[in-house]
Each structure stands twice: as C-alpha cells, then as structure tokens.
Amino acid sequence: MTDLRAALRRAVSDTAEPGAAELYHALAEALLDSAAEDEGPAELERVKSRVYRLRIASNGRARSFVLKRFDPWLARRNELVARRWLPAIGLGERCPRLLATAADRRGECVWHVYEDLGEGAVDAVHPDPARVRAVVDLIAELHTRAAGHALLPECRHFCGDLGAPFFAANVRDAIAVLEGLVPPRVAPTPEQGALRGRLLLRLYRLRDELPGRVQRLETLGGPETLLHGDLWTTNTFVATTGDALVARLIDWDHTAVGPASYDLSTF
C-alpha cells in the first residue's frame, strides 16, 4: 500500500463514522491514480455533522473533495438530481459533480463524494448584486426548463410535492397534534394551554381558508416545476469563469415538485 493510500485509510477510519471501510475503497478507486503515490498527506476536516472536507496531494497535485453521509433514501434523491434530473434539462454542470458513492454494508447509510466548490457562497449580510443576479438567473432557468418536463412525475415519486397538497396536509397534521395535547396525555401549564389555544384558532382559520388559498396558489404560484426546496444563501455558490459569473446550487436534500413561488419564498 502506498503512503497516500495508507494515510487516506487512516484519515477515514479515524472518523469512526459508519461505512468508513466502504468509503475508503470508493475513494481509493475513484480518486487515486493507479500509479504509485508517495507524496501525501491526506487531511480530513469535519465541516459539520455528516460532512467532511478531504484534502489530498498526489503526483504534485493538491485536490479537495466534500464527503457527505446520507440516509439511503436521501442519498438516492441527491444522486438522481446530480446524475439524472439536472442533466436531463441541460443543467448538469450547475451542481457539484458527484464523483463516487459508497453504501454501508449494513444498509444504514450511503456516502457521496463531491467535487469541492470552495468558498463561493453568496454573502447574506453584504450581498454582491452581480453574484445575486447570477443565482437568480440560475433559479429562473431551473424553473423554466423543468416546468412541465416529462420527468416531473418521477421527481414527485421520489421527492414528494411542495405545492397545495403539502400546505393542506401540514395544516391538518398541526391541528391533529395540538388537539391531542390535552389531559391525561399531557398536563400543560396555564401558559402552554393558552398558547395551544391561540395556535389552534389560527390553524382553524387556515383550514377554513384552504379552498381559497389553494385556488390562489394554483393561479398565482407559478408553474409546477422542479424545486431546490432549500434556497438559503449558504446553498448557493458563484465562481468566476473567464469573464462570467457561474452559479451553482448545493444540498438538494429538500428538492421536490411544486410551484416556482415556493423556492422564491425561501431565497
């Protein structure tokens, strides 16, 4: 085993994450050259829960990758976005490239290995207008190209719907939960009881307004399309390519089908 492969194995194993052995083999197969590598090292930095940044140096090159651990169903969703749905509408280059996947042998998780886009998120406090414009243009392009696309039923099957059915179901679920918070199941304080009452009154009004709200959403909410579903500025990246700004979107965990206005409400 070369020095770099040994360093990579140690770095991955030291995380004590599930699926570490499978992840190492996927990384070695997908990222390391077949020629002997002895430069190293391999450095693994924990970015947040389930997410790591891997830096390796081999054959005089420094490379960086993002490793992310998913529940299996969520891994499948993100894989479909990167390898099927975005390429089908001509936007396959507008998300990080998915370089490798590794499934834990017990079926508990799946690792994804992505190219590292670096530090290019839109600054939410001091946004640069040109960068914001690049992201807005990409969002508009996503919604326009995916609207009415033949793959939308497949997207809905795997990811669900964030349109009117989603809104109506959440109102009903919230009412059911709050109506169940009564003695003897729970013993709320007077303040908690009053809060529960206020919330229920508001939810009852929303339930009574559902027909009108659904009609307005269908009329004014924009075309049904593929949604990112979580358009915080931290999920937007803008890089300078030549003389142009190129935007990309990351973290498609909440992607679904629904009206374009849903994405606009979260950006």
Rank of each mutant, 00 (worst) to 15 (best):
Y204N: 07
E209D: 07
L217A: 03
R207D: 05
L201M: 02
L200Q: 00
P223I: 11
E218Y: 03
L195Q: 03
G197Y: 15
L206V: 00
R202A: 07
L195H: 02
L199R: 08
R196F: 10
G221T: 14
V214I: 11
R196P: 10
G222Y: 04
T225R: 02
G212W: 14
R196K: 07
R207N: 01
L210W: 10
L199F: 09
L217V: 07
L200S: 00
L227R: 00
D208P: 05
L210E: 07
T225N: 14
G222F: 03
A194M: 06
D208V: 01
E218Q: 03
L203W: 03
L226S: 04
E218I: 02
R216P: 15
L206Q: 00
L201N: 05
R196W: 03
T225F: 14
A194F: 05
T219P: 15
R213L: 04
R198K: 11
T219M: 06
L203R: 03
L201Y: 09
D208G: 08
G197V: 12
R196L: 10
L201G: 11
R216M: 08
G222R: 02
D208S: 12
L206E: 00
G193I: 02
R196E: 13
T219R: 10
R216H: 11
D208L: 12
G221W: 00
A194S: 04
R196D: 05
L199E: 12
R205T: 09
E209N: 06
L226C: 01
E209V: 02
L203C: 10
R216E: 12
L210N: 07
V214C: 15
E224H: 09
L206N: 00
D208I: 02
T225G: 06
P223L: 09
E224Y: 12
L199T: 13
Y204S: 09
Y204P: 15
R205F: 04
R213F: 04
